[in-house]
Deep mutational scan, measured.
Amino acid sequence: QIFVKTLMGKTITLEVELSDTIDNVKAKIQDKEGIPPDQQRLIFAGKQLEDGRTLSDYNIQKESTLHLVL
């Protein structure tokens, strides 16, 4: 699992595989929060994550926290 922190300070827990693409992750956030993926920007280690890449491409591990910017 990974964590996604919103600017409102809310933390969302997502069940993911490290082979999941950023697209997949955004879809899971949409399922939980109702935010359309095209409005989501995910940040990790100061970098904006690109849709076609996977979590492992960015060296994101289990229990990592991503930041969601709208």
Rank of each mutant, 00 (worst) to 15 (best):
residue 2 I to C: 01
residue 3 F to M: 02
residue 4 V to S: 00
residue 4 V to L: 10
residue 5 K to Q: 03
residue 5 K to N: 14
residue 6 T to W: 02
residue 6 T to C: 05
residue 6 T to Q: 02
residue 6 T to I: 05
residue 6 T to A: 05
residue 7 L to G: 15
residue 7 L to T: 15
residue 8 M to Y: 14
residue 8 M to N: 14
residue 9 G to R: 08
residue 9 G to T: 03
residue 10 K to L: 03
residue 10 K to H: 06
residue 12 I to C: 04
residue 12 I to R: 05
residue 13 T to F: 11
residue 13 T to G: 09
residue 13 T to C: 10
residue 14 L to H: 01
residue 14 L to T: 06
residue 15 E to H: 04
residue 16 V to Y: 12
residue 17 E to R: 09
residue 17 E to A: 07
residue 18 L to S: 02
residue 18 L to Q: 01
residue 19 S to L: 07
residue 19 S to W: 03
residue 20 D to E: 04
residue 21 T to M: 01
residue 21 T to G: 06
residue 21 T to S: 03
residue 21 T to A: 03
residue 23 D to M: 08
residue 23 D to E: 03
residue 23 D to Q: 03
residue 23 D to L: 04
residue 24 N to G: 06
residue 24 N to M: 10
residue 24 N to P: 13
residue 25 V to D: 00
residue 25 V to T: 11
residue 25 V to H: 00
residue 26 K to P: 00
residue 26 K to S: 08
residue 26 K to I: 12
residue 26 K to D: 00
residue 27 A to K: 07
residue 28 K to D: 12
residue 29 I to A: 06
residue 29 I to N: 00
residue 29 I to T: 02
residue 30 Q to K: 09
residue 31 D to A: 07
residue 32 K to T: 09
residue 33 E to P: 01
residue 34 G to A: 09
residue 35 I to D: 14
residue 36 P to Y: 07
residue 36 P to K: 09
residue 37 P to R: 09
residue 37 P to I: 12
residue 38 D to P: 04
residue 38 D to S: 03
residue 39 Q to G: 07
residue 40 Q to M: 04
residue 40 Q to E: 01
residue 42 L to C: 02
residue 43 I to C: 13
residue 43 I to T: 15
residue 44 F to S: 12
residue 45 A to Q: 11
residue 45 A to G: 08
residue 46 G to F: 06
residue 46 G to R: 04
residue 46 G to S: 05
residue 47 K to A: 14
residue 47 K to L: 15
residue 48 Q to V: 03
residue 50 E to S: 10
residue 51 D to Y: 02
residue 51 D to G: 06
residue 51 D to N: 04
residue 51 D to F: 03
residue 52 G to D: 04
residue 53 R to Q: 09
residue 54 T to W: 04
residue 55 L to T: 01
residue 55 L to M: 02
residue 55 L to F: 06
residue 56 S to K: 14
residue 56 S to D: 08
residue 57 D to R: 11
residue 57 D to T: 12
residue 57 D to A: 11
residue 57 D to M: 13
residue 58 Y to D: 06
residue 60 I to L: 05
residue 60 I to V: 07
residue 60 I to E: 11
residue 60 I to D: 05
residue 60 I to R: 01
residue 61 Q to M: 13
residue 61 Q to P: 12
residue 62 K to D: 12
residue 62 K to G: 13
residue 62 K to W: 06
residue 62 K to V: 10
residue 62 K to M: 02
residue 62 K to L: 11
residue 63 E to Q: 08
residue 64 S to A: 12
residue 64 S to P: 15
residue 65 T to D: 15
residue 65 T to R: 09
residue 66 L to D: 15
residue 66 L to F: 11
residue 69 V to G: 13
residue 69 V to M: 10
residue 69 V to T: 07
residue 70 L to K: 01
residue 70 L to M: 14
residue 70 L to V: 08
residue 70 L to D: 15
